[in-house]
Design a protein around this nucleic acid. Structure first.
Lengths: 191, 191
DNA sequence: CCCTCGGTATACTGATCTGTGAAGTCCAGA
DNA sequence: TCTGGACTTCACAGATCAGTATACCGAGGG
C-alpha cells in the first residue's frame, strides 16, 4: 500500500525544506522556487524528483505522517501499563508540540486543498483513522468497555488539543487529564 | 471595540461572495478578481470598499464570527433548562455544520496566515476565547463545579468535532454525548 | 445647471506563479 | 575511455497575482 519511495540526496534535501516551509508558511503561500532555493537545489532537479508541486505536497504530508506515527508507536511501546498506554498518544503530542506550534499539518493542508480527489485528502483521512483505530486497539487491550466510542472521543480530544494549539490557550493539560479520566472510567466499568 | 462598519449594497455583495469563496476554496487560492466577478462588481469598487485583500479577509472572518455568535446565543436562549444550556453550542454546531462542511473557518484561516500580527489572528483568538468564557458562564449558572476547567474541556471537544468534520468520521454525536456527560457529572458533584 | 458620489468598464503595471526546454558539468562504473 | 544518469544554469512560456489609472455614467442635491 504505502510505497516507500527512494529519494536521492538532493530529493531528501528538497523534502526537508518542503516540510519546514509548507508547515510554517502554508502550502499555497510557498512557491517551488523558494523550496528549491532553500534546499540548495535547482528547480529542474525538484521537478525531476517529484514531478509536480502537488506530488511534492503529497510526499511532504506522507513523510510527516510517517514521522508522527513512529513517535506515537515508540511512546506507546514505552508504556509498561496497558491502561496508561491508551493515553500515550497525548504524551506524544506534548513532545511533538515542542517543535510544531502551528496546529495539525493535515488539517491545515485540507484547508488549502479543497479538492476531495487530491491525494492529500487520502493521507489526512488515513492518518486520523489510523489514530482512532490505535485508540480502539489499545482500549481493547486494556480491557475498556465500548472501545469504539471511547476511541472516537479520544480522537476528538486529540484533534481539539491540536486545533487550539495556535491560539495559545494552553489546552493540552486539561485535555490529557480528561482523556485519562475517561480511560480509567471505561476500565473501572468492567470490574 | 468591534466597529460595526456600514457597507454599501455593492460592498455587501462583495462580502457575501468573499465568505463563500474564501471558506470553500481557501483564502490564498482565491484572487480578488474572482471575488469581484462573482459579486458582480468591479475591482475598483471592491478596493474602494475594503482597501486591500487583507482587510477584505478580516471583514470576512469578522462577519462569519458575528453570524456564528448570533446562532449560538439564540440556541442558548432557547434552552429553558440551565444545565442543558451548557451544551447548547454543540447543538448550534450541528445546525451550523449543515452548510459548513470544511471545518472551522478561523482555524483554516490561521493555517494560511502564519503572520501572528495579521488581524485575522486576533479575530480567531477572540472567538475561541469568547466560546470558552461562554461555556464557563453557562457552567457557573448551572451550578457546576470547577467551571473553568470544564469550559476548557468543552472548548477542546467543540474544536475537535469541528476539526474532524472534513474527514467524514461522524464524530459529532459521540462528542455531544461526552459533553453532556461531563456537564451532568460536574453538576452532580455539587449536591 | 452643475457638481459630487458611487459605481462601471477597461486597460495596465510589475511581480510571482507552475512548469518546460536546451545545453553543459560532474562522476561512477563497465 | 566511453557511457549514462543526476545535477546545474539560464532562459522562457503562459497564467495569475494584488493593486492602480483613466475615463465614463447616472442620479440626487445645492
Amino acid at each position: 500500500m504505502s510505497e516507500v519511495r527512494q529519494f536521492s540526496a538532493a530529493g531528501r534535501r528538497v523534502l526537508a525544506a518542503a516540510e519546514e516551509l509548507f508547515y510554517e508558511r502554508g502550502i499555497t503561500a510557498v512557491g517551488v522556487d523558494l523550496v528549491a532555493e532553500r534546499s540548495g537545489v535547482t528547480k529542474r532537479t525538484l521537478y525531476n524528483q517529484f514531478g509536480s508541486k502537488d506530488q511534492l505536497v503529497t510526499a511532504y504530508l506522507g513523510e510527516r505522517d510517517r514521522r508522527w506515527r513512529a513517535l506515537v508507536r515508540a511512546t506507546v511501546d514505552d508504556c509498561a501499563d496497558p491502561l496508561h498506554a491508551v493515553t500515550a498518544p497525548f504524551e506524544a503530542l506534548r513532545e511533538w508540540s515542542r517543535t510544531s506550534g502551528r496546529g495539525c499539518a493535515f488539517v491545515n493542508a485540507l484547508a488549502e486543498l479543497p479538492d476531495p480527489d487530491h491525494p492529500a485528502h487520502r493521507v489526512a483521512t488515513e492518518q486520523k483513522r489510523w489514530l482512532r483505530d490505535l485508540f480502539s486497539e489499545l482500549a481493547t487491550a486494556a480491557g475498556c468497555t465500548d472501545p469504539a466510542t471511547l476511541a472516537t472521543q479520544l480522537l476528538v480530544l486529540h484533534e481539539g488539543a491540536l486545533a487550539t494549539q495556535p491560539l495559545a490557550l494552553d489546552t493540552l493539560p486539561a485535555t490529557t487529564d480528561l482523556a485519562w479520566t475517561l480511560v480509567r472510567a471505561a476500565a473501572d466499568a468492567t470490574g
